[in-house]
Design a protein around this nucleic acid. Sequence first.
DNA 1: AACGCGTGAGACGTCACTGTCTCATTCGGG
DNA 2: CCCGAATGAGACAGTGACGTCTCACGCGTT
Lengths: 182, 182
Amino acid sequence: MAVDREHVLKEAAGLLTRKATASMDEIAKAAGISRATLHRHFAGRDALIRALEDLGLAQFEQALDAARLDEGDAVGALRRLLAEAEPVFAFMAFLCTENQLFEGDLHEGWDRLDARINAVFRRGQEEGCFRIDLSSVWLTEALYGLIGAGAWAVHDGRVARKDLNHSIAELLLGGARRSMEK
Amino acid sequence: MAVDREHVLKEAAGLLTRKATASMDEIAKAAGISRATLHRHFAGRDALIRALEDLGLAQFEQALDAARLDEGDAVGALRRLLAEAEPVFAFMAFLCTENQLFEGDLHEGWDRLDARINAVFRRGQEEGCFRIDLSSVWLTEALYGLIGAGAWAVHDGRVARKDLNHSIAELLLGGARRSMEK
DNA sequence: AACGCGTGAGACGTCACTGTCTCATTCGGG
DNA sequence: CCCGAATGAGACAGTGACGTCTCACGCGTT
């Protein structure tokens, strides 16, 4: 009986990632509930978006924690990061495109997560296994871009879901690693 | 006196990439003209979007032609592709996000350009300089994703425009190339 | 000067979406 | 069994954007 808020948010993220202009009615239908019920659980469109950001960031942060980014070398940390974050790629794709929508008005929690990822790349550069002619900031942006592109490619069948993680990790690590070793 | 259609489209692309829900009034203001004049040159929002797609695809195709993708090795072809396409990255970023907006209803010309890029990656794989565990389809998607992420990163100053091309090329080529050689 | 073209400003009706409401229905627990 | 909570369906006015229109102005041409 009780609506699964998390399920609604997940469906909403999927729809809004594909179609940023989706109406509340479309979102409700995508989640399998009526527009009235959607409004009962989320005060309005703004509240829905905010909840979406909160849940996405929370899950992403949880993935970052689980990845133990400080342990081992940076390459392994990145692999663990992608493996842990894989279930929330859809949310991340939404967050990335949404951050573009609200120019300047970004969620305060985003900076913190951004810094943690940035730190991994910087550590990799300091350890000498990542090339230094690509800034850690760019590598972070590239990670988001690849996740977004990957989530989209999976969505309409151009990439198999089981290959997604390997595809992103190998491309990003191959591009970031110094070509000398190995 | 006569409005520069191309300038209007360029401004519109820039604005719509950042804010997909921008109103016709906002687009007009961004282009420095009135809403009335905008409607005189483009029958409506749909027509504007269509014109945007047409111009973006035409410029992108022109870049592909100039890059002589069939000459030399695949790595060089990709470098030339990125160099030639660099001025139209903003348009491409728009096209990528816009293709997501109209699910299924994609521009017919896109397939052709997509196939040309895909062919470069496939050729690189057949020539043995690109790894084969990453599908050419994924590499193509990754190219779009990196261009989109790069254009966005440049837009709000996280990456210098002069570094953009190098950043994308090195990351993509580094990730795509077989790590054995060089 | 007179004319015409393109533009800016604004008014207007239309339409889709929003947010809130009411009412009937259903499902589960006491 | 009955009651209450949650849902679905629909009505309602408010809002904003859209597309079209008219009118006045600026500017170049004849």
